[in-house]
């Protein structure tokens, strides 16, 4: 029997959940539980330290199947509480050695964590990605004019130049469309952040990502936000921009920096 630690999925206000989500944890043999201290409950499950200690963990992070399984379990547990409250999500593979260590952390950071939970209460994160869907590219100019005509180098170069200008123009158009989109959605959100666009290999799309944004939206404005995104998606389609909406997410991107978050 090996030593166990506590894997922490996220933190919620005490009383927000009647019980822990009835779901398998990152170690399927062990249930998800709550550990409360003061006004905060941590959503946790036990894990074997011989698998989750620093060295073995490092090795396992090379195993993408394991990383995916763990990440999805982590998300499923947090997703299960979204209807009841907004959790402060922990980063993947946050493990405390024992109950005492976890309780000490909750105690020491109680004030800041409670403030963050209050601030995030009634909000959720939404992701909007924009992709540039180019029109069918124009056929490359033939080095020559009309059939039978003498090849004209000048005409060829002029055509190439025109195409380059058109491409530059299209790029500026896309940038402007993204800016309008982000402005419109930011206006419906409590906070917004722009991330680096994902590469096509990672996004799994063969069209380039031109916007990767996240928005913190009040639950009361949820319908307005998703409907506006759909409207903007229809409006932007003729301009060569396709949108993808994801969510709702626990507010991974909007935990205040004061409690160790990204904001």
């Amino acid at each position: 029997m090996s030593e166990t630690g506590l894997y922490v999925y996220g933190l919620v206000p005490r009383g927000a959940l009647e019980r822990a989500p009835d779901l398998p944890g990152v170690d399927s043999a062990r249930p998800v539980e709550l550990r409360c201290e003061g006004g905060i409950c941590a959503i946790v499950s036990r894990v074997d330290l011989d698998r989750f200690d620093e060295e073995p963990l490092r090795e396992r992070l090379a195993d993408m199947d394991w990383v995916e399984r763990t990440a999805r379990r982590h998300q499923e547990v947090l997703d299960a509480v979204l209807a009841a409250c907004t959790p402060i999500p922990m980063r993947l593979c946050t493990v405390y050695q024992d109950d005492a260590g976890l309780r000490r952390m909750l105690d020491e950071h109680q004030e800041g964590l409670l403030a963050a939970l209050t601030e995030l209460s009634g909000t959720l994160e939404w992701g909007v990605q924009a992709f540039h869907v180019p029109e069918t590219p124009a056929a490359p100019p033939r080095p020559g004019g009309q059939p039978g005509e003498t090849a004209s180098g000048t005409a060829y170069l002029q055509t190439r130049l025109r195409q380059r200008h058109a491409a530059e123009h299209a790029e500026a158009e896309i940038a402007r469309a993204c800016e309008e989109l982000h402005d419109a959605l930011s206006g419906l959100a409590l906070a917004a952040r722009l991330g680096a666009p994902q590469r096509p290999e990672a996004s799994g799309r063969d069209t380039p990502m031109v916007l990767n944004a996240v928005y913190l939206v009040a639950n009361a404005d949820r319908a307005r936000f998703t409907q506006r995104t759909a409207q903007l998606g229809s409006a932007l389609a003729p301009r060569g921009v396709a949108l993808r909406l994801t969510g709702p997410w626990a507010p991974y991107s909007f935990v205040p920096a004061a409690v160790g978050g990204a904001r």
């Binding site: 620093e54 946050t94 160790g260």
Partner: peptide, 11 residues
């Protein structure tokens, strides 16, 4: 994203 609270955390 998510929270990283330094200090007591083991890993």
């Amino acid at each position: 994203g998510g929270v990283v609270i330094q200090g007591q955390i083991t890993l």
